[in-house]
Design a protein around this nucleic acid. Structure first.
Lengths: 337, 337
DNA sequence: ATGAAATTCCGAAACGTTTCGGATATTTTT
DNA sequence: AAAAATATCCGAAACGTTTCGGAATTTCAT
């Protein structure tokens, strides 16, 4: 494979000159530069990024640590959309992305820092990490620039992007309350996600604002899966038939709720109103179409990448970015009858 | 950052010995090895993959060239699932993945070979490339190991994985014909996808087998988008109301067909039977649930990665892999009345 | 004509590994 | 006890770049 030396030899100059010519420095004669570029093209030279990175001490790559890259994550296009957003930005800024493979078994062997330093990524974006993941501490303590998605952790070298989850569920109950609902329950997700407590908080605030009763037995855990949500909703609605509305902490769980309602012969939205969270693709296609709190996951990815290179270049001072969310009213909510 | 030299100094040995100790060579004393490993841990040494790759001339990374990593590709979990499959395998085999960026205009300036050689990836997996993409020629001519998804191109260094697309649509029409349908139309995708012609071929073969008439006006192009499919189906069904069944070359287009049918007040499946292709997540959730030809996209990704490292190691002789597909009968097909 | 300034080039070190060919010390064989 | 074999280590080159400090040449101002 052609190297810079080959060009130097053919052009009758030093490697220094070739390097500087190809990188657009000003201290090289126009003629020699042209000649060098010509030769480079002829022998199909392409620079070795490894060698360059080695000496420059930066790789122009950002690492990606994503937990949801699994078969189950497929229904949920969140991971995909965030990835797409990141990829979009990286394309514009000429960064490459490397996907770290980190199944649980491998994670025990290598620490977070080792993973990142081996590949010498300039920075990392972390998505879907759980509260109790040991990597989390490392992320916070290490000096590797990092931005987290939906994990509020800030630092000189680490920032995060998230949506206003409190506001999200808050608006969900405002919407339901506005439709006359009083007996509102919540299907929340597991506790390993940071967003869960925020979405719960928003629910509580919303209820308080409207002077609605919050009953602990009406707040159940669907583990962010469709199946589990179906099960707990089944129990919930049989035990408390007086519930007329449910806010779910994710669309996927909302689908489970719909399944449960169907089994109990409770028509949505007439017998039960439902608002989800996320606005995954399925939400708009399922019938009745799901009313939900939409978050712009593409933009989350995009701004995450933007924030990261901001930190990398030292130009970013505000290391936390909040993306707006939006209530999309579709067909699963209606006035109480 | 700690290097091998630091360890050497602390342990009082040469860098050679450190390197060989850390890499498990046999010509290093058990005591010194232990000492070296001890020190390495203490000073938190992590090897520099760049330096290693530079001299070893391989990076243990595989490049990913995917076209569908865009906002539109989100409804379609195919890209995601393939990616997941690849990622799964790479996790097992300790390869890292680097996502090349192709949708940006900037990166398109670089040739395929440049892209790959710069990053020194060991091999490449290409997904969603169009027939007329100039990269395709390069892929074939270059000596960089590569496996393509759904593009039948074979070579000493390039293989591919696909499903039996002819068989897929063939079975679709067998199914419909078995239900008594005679006037069967097809909504195919654009011509830049290799699978299009195969799926068309399967349709034709299926019709011939059953002695059913193939009418060219009944084969329309939905461009693999929901919207376009809706439009052409609208025209198709208004012009030829006698059509009782449609096979679509993708599920996404099938959704468009469903939209069109709804507008024309033709109930699916009673007034119109429909079978899709892909089995995307939406297929099972939409109502009526879509009968479709399912392809195991996760497995496609997994075997693609498997095939690639096979080629890399020179152990793989069969460079084309065909994955089975399966007819999933759901609710959009029924007996003709 | 002369010194100053600008232009254009280059040698060599550095980045952090791996690996070849050999050197030294220790053990085994005869 | 000498020779052979083995165990353990090391020096130096190589991978392909970038960059610092300076050198040689040309142009400019005076």
């Amino acid at each position: 494979m052609a190297t810079i030396k080959d060009i130097a030899k053919l052009a009758g100059v030093s490697v220094t000159t070739v390097s500087r010519a190809l990188n657009g420095y000003s201290d090289v004669n126009a003629n020699t530069r042209q000649k060098i570029e010509q030769i480079a093209k002829e022998i199909e030279y392409s620079p070795n990024a490894l060698a360059r990175s080695l000496v420059m001490k930066k790789t122009k790559t950002i690492g990606l640590l994503v937990s949801g890259l699994s078969r189950e994550g497929s229904k949920d296009n969140i991971v995909f959309d965030v990835l797409t957003g990141i990829n979009e930005y990286c394309g514009e800024m000429d960064y490459d992305l490397v996907l770290f493979n980190t199944n649980s078994s491998k994670q025990k062997e290598k620490t977070y820092t080792q993973l990142c330093r081996e590949r010498r990524v300039d920075g990392v974006i972390v998505q879907g990490i759980k509260k109790d993941d040991p990597y989390l501490i490392e992320i916070f303590e290490s000096d590797i620039p990092c931005v987290l998605i939906d994990v509020p952790l800030e630092n000189e070298t680490t920032g995060y992007v998230t949506t206003d989850n409190v506001d999200g569920t808050f608006r969900a109950v405002q919407h339901l309350s506005g439709l006359g609902h009083i007996n509102i329950a919540m299907v929340n997700g597991h506790d390993q996600a940071f967003v869960s407590q925020e979405r719960l908080r928003g629910f509580e605030l919303g209820m308080q604002k409207r002077n609605l009763p919050i009953r602990r037995e009406w707040i159940v855990n669907g583990e962010y899966t469709e199946l589990k949500a179906e099960q707990v909703t089944l129990e919930l609605l049989t035990a408390f038939p007086e519930i007329t509305a449910i806010v779910s902490a994710s669309d996927l769980m909302a689908l489970g709720v719909m399944r449960a309602a169907r089994q109990l012969n409770r028509k949505i939205p007439d017998d039960l109103s439902l608002v989800g969270y996320d606005d995954i693709t399925l939400a708009a296609y399922v019938s009745p179409a799901l009313t939900t709190i939409a978050q712009d996951t593409f933009r989350m990815g995009f701004t995450a990448a933007d924030l990261l290179v901001g930190i990398l270049q030292g130009t970013e001072t505000n290391r936390v970015k909040i993306i707006d969310n939006e209530l999309k009213v579709r067909q699963t909510t209606t006035k109480i009858n």
